[in-house]
Design a protein around this nucleic acid. Structure first.
Lengths: 335, 335
DNA sequence: CTGAAAGCGCTAACAG
DNA sequence: CTGTTAGCGCTTTCAG
């Protein structure tokens, strides 16, 4: 990489002259400016980012900590973050906590050494189970703003972007009740997560209000359980079940395919709705009716909130929570 | 963030003393070392990463450019890269080219200003179609090493990590032929990509060698085509087709579900094999027989190769290509 | 054993 | 209009 120093030497002028010329300072003579710019062009000069960061005491870099990059929603949010960040000239450093509290702490620690100007993160499963929040508070008190999305720690004072999980599930369940479904089961493989719990509560509320059936819940343990087997044996044992509402896409897809496999007519005698993305809905015939999360928008919003905060305010003070509404995309797995 | 300066001031010693004490230099007295370390601990001192980068002229950061984070394989590779990088104390800056040549160029340019010590990337679709490679060469000539994975530009001299796409598809096709399948169709939605073409060639070779049928290929246009419709109408029109081999997971899952939907018995009278991951195989009943790519391992290898190169060698010289072999996981969609 | 000083690449206040 | 200087935070050589 060429430096100002080298350009200055070759041009026989001082470093600051070169710097000013490249920054279009009014102080420098037209002629000099031209000569400098030509040489800079020739050598493909780019200001050294690290030097600038040191000078300005900001890196124009956002730290993103994601629990699991294989989760489609989280990946999509990351996409949104990256897109919006790039638009504003920010880079993103990505760490994957792999749902581990320890790795999450480390990543936060490691990047809080001047590598980034702020964080966007979704809380790891282990962190939520243990209800740990000290590391977040510490980071914020060091002056580094945090924006949390999707899985958030409510007791931490920071900006948040969340989904209307409760309402979405409440409404979706009600739509199944309107179809006259009499025995709706809620299936979830994310019951340890805050969002999973909210979704279950939304389901419960709708069922209890309606008063025709008791809540019926099937919880899958990711990693441990054989997803297909668990759902198949459940549906076999509970022949009166006539609808599934799934908190995650896999449970939805598998439930629908299993129902078909068991000879049930979908949607005539059996309905399925799931939190899922468009490509998931292609994995069943008929196509799955889905609750869409607009994950990219979540990422975009999170990035916007963080950038705004980094440019203006202290890390805590007047924090906001933005709710990105879900929408239901009706396909042929419901009436 | 506390700095050496502040610690020095508070302790009434010089900056260099503090620095040395923290780095366990033999030069400094035991007592001083202890005092310094205690205060550093108290204030949670962390050496400023940016200052170190400037000093050492290396950032301990890897630039990763990925065409599409929603692609499961690419996301998994990213996971592998991040894991291995973290192990060696490297951070990763992620850019998403979104399959665009322009964005890929920009990202490369932008990060080549001292932000990263090297790159790991998979070539964007548009780049492969236009067969552009100048931007890669330029980056390498600037002294920044590149490791390419999966979709690589063969004419660029750099380290590469690839998959045995051709062989994998050749062998998988042969296994279908051994099942006495008489009319095997190759379905792909990635035909513009280098890997997609390799897979098609592997299929072709196996079919032509066997000599019983002509190659039969169905190409899906991502974005444009309705994936389900396209496959359904194809299978309806080609009733003699008795096996599908898919270059991508969606085509595999949809083909299998469609076959079932059309009343075909899988695997008795119809087989399906697809390049796909474990979770995809759960999206069909019976479970899909898959060609697995070991994507995480690809990421790990790529990171290892880059780190080795950054520590030792010039950016070009003695480049290596590593092939990460696929493996077939037999499930119940084949005999 | 401790400190002063230089330098990584850059900007900007201040002198000339 | 151009140059000198200081300083961002750190390490390291060289003096003391």
């Amino acid at each position: 990489m060429v430096t100002l120093k080298q350009l200055a030497k070759e041009l026989g002028v001082s470093i600051s002259t070169v710097s000013k010329a490249l920054n279009n300072s009014e102080e420098i003579g037209e002629d000099t400016v031209r000569r400098v710019k030509e040489l800079a062009e020739l050598y493909n000069y780019k200001p050294n980012k690290v030097a600038l960061s040191l000078k300005n005491n900001k890196t124009k870099t956002i730290g993103v900590i994601i629990p699991n990059i294989l989760n489609r929603i989280l990946a999509k949010v990351l996409f949104g973050i990256e897109t919006e960040a790039a638009k504003h000239g920010y880079n993103i450093i990505t760490c994957i906590s792999n749902e581990s509290l320890e790795k999450e702490k480390q990543s936060l620690q490691l990047l809080a050494n001047g590598s980034v100007d702020g964080f966007i993160l979704s809380v790891a499963e282990e962190t939520q189970i243990n209800n740990e929040i000290e590391h977040f508070k510490k980071t914020i008190s060091q002056g580094l703003p945090i924006v949390m999305f999707d899985r958030v720690a409510h007791d931490v004072m920071c900006d948040k972007v969340i989904v209307d999980d409760f309402d979405a599930m409440y409404n979706a369940t009600k739509s199944l009740l309107k179809e006259k479904r009499k025995n709706i089961v809620f299936i979830s493989n994310i019951n340890d997560l805050s969002v999973g719990k909210l979704r279950e509560r939304g389901y419960n509320k709708a069922i209890l209000e309606h008063g025709v059936q008791e809540p019926l819940v099937l919880k899958i343990k990711r990693k441990k359980d054989d997803h297909q087997k668990k759902i198949k044996s459940f549906l076999k044992k509970n022949r009166t079940v006539d609808a599934v509402i799934a908190a995650d896409s896999s449970s939805g897809v598998i439930a629908l395919n299993t129902a078909i496999n068991l000879g049930l007519k979908v949607p005539k005698e059996f309905s399925v709705i799931a939190f899922a993305s468009k490509s998931d809905s292609n994995h069943t015939i008929p196509k799955l009716t889905t609750i869409r999360q607009h994950a990219k928008e979540i990422g975009v919003s999170a990035a916007q909130m963080l950038i705004a905060r980094m440019q203006n305010l202290p890390a805590s003070a007047d924090v906001k929570t933005k709710i990105v509404k879900t929408s239901i995309v009706k396909n042929k797995s419901t009436l």
